[in-house]
């Protein structure tokens, strides 16, 4: 029953990618910006969770919520300070700024607390039980359910609330949305807040599942989540979820076949193939260029 175990490994990894990918995709959907600082928001979220558990003695759920709230605020601050004034600048200018913000966060954290890694405390028991010959830990079940709940919540916000409606409208056509009386700036901030909160949640979950966190931990998951977002179709929310899960499972299968050293390469091969054969991603429609 090795394959069931590998599938569980893959889905756990994939759900973390998916949570990060959601933030990428939402921001891209609304202002066409690849927010490279997103992986670092994920890192900051992980550290906030770590300190709220170790220093303030909070449990998992309070730490998760605190980290999500702090990251939401952090995301809005980044948007207001760094990206807002570039709203009408070229896309390359915004992209370069995003890379700059990313480096600033990474090395800012190193400056404040040093580069040494930190070990997440065990908030759940390490118990695991056998299921169809596979070992499933209590942790991975809780982590999966938290991810699923957050994704459902996101769908609800996007489709059933006024903010969500505004987000969809701005994403569809910013100018028209403005004419309809939608406060575009606030809607964009809300998008950053929600995306960053999800990254914060992913950070806490990552810390609990993988134990080790450090100031540069956001780089690789950030890039992988970007691949996941492109795979699913960037700008499309369900695409990010599916893309993340597919990527997680593919990486696991590559390792399972004995090519563990090629695992990272597999992710980027997928990115290249998708860009060549289906640039709009799995869920993407072939959109016409607006003239």
């Amino acid at each position: 029953m090795e394959w069931i175990q590998q599938l569980i490994n893959g889905i756990s990894l994939g759900s973390i990618y998916a949570l990060i990918a959601l933030g990428y995709t939402m921001v891209y959907g609304i202002i066409k910006l690849i927010n490279f600082a997103h992986g670092d928001v994920f890192m900051v979220g992980s550290f906030i969770g770590f300190y709220s558990i170790t220093v303030f003695g909070l449990g998992f759920f309070p730490a998760l919520i605190l980290s999500m709230a702090a990251c939401a605020l952090f995301g809005v601050i980044i948007e207001r300070i760094a990206y807002k004034r570039l709203r009408n600048a070229t896309r390359i200018a915004a992209l370069i700024t995003a890379i700059g913000v990313s480096l600033l966060i990474e090395y800012g954290v190193i400056y404040i607390r040093g580069a040494q890694p930190e070990a997440y405390p065990d908030v759940f028991s390490n118990r695991s039980f056998a299921f169809l010959g596979a070992q499933i830990s209590i942790q991975s079940i809780l982590i999966l359910s938290v991810s699923v709940v957050l994704m459902i919540l996101l769908q609800f916000i996007v489709h059933k609330t006024k903010t969500g409606k505004a987000m969809r409208a701005v994403s569809h056509d910013t100018e028209a949305a403005k004419l309809m009386g939608i406060n575009v700036d606030n809607t964009i901030s809300a998008t950053f807040a929600i995306g960053s909160a999800l990254a914060g949640a992913a950070g806490v979950i990552f810390g609990i599942y993988y134990t080790k966190i450090d100031p540069l931990m956001g780089v690789i998951p950030g890039v992988k989540a970007f691949v996941a977002a492109v795979l699913g179709g960037i700008g499309i929310i369900p695409g990010a979820m599916v893309g993340g899960l597919v990527l997680g499972v593919v990486e696991t299968i590559v390792s399972a076949l004995g090519f563990s050293l090629w695992r990272d390469a597999a992710a980027f091969v997928i990115l290249i193939l998708i860009l060549i054969f289906r640039p709009s991603g799995i869920f993407g429609k072939n959109t016409r260029e607006k003239v």
Binding site: K212, M217, E251, A256, S260
Partner: peptide, 15 residues
């Protein structure tokens, strides 16, 4: 084998 800085070893360990 693995590469330094990896964080996910579960699939290889399952093998």
């Amino acid at each position: 084998s693995y590469v330094a800085k990896d964080t996910d070893f579960r699939s290889t360990l399952t093998n």
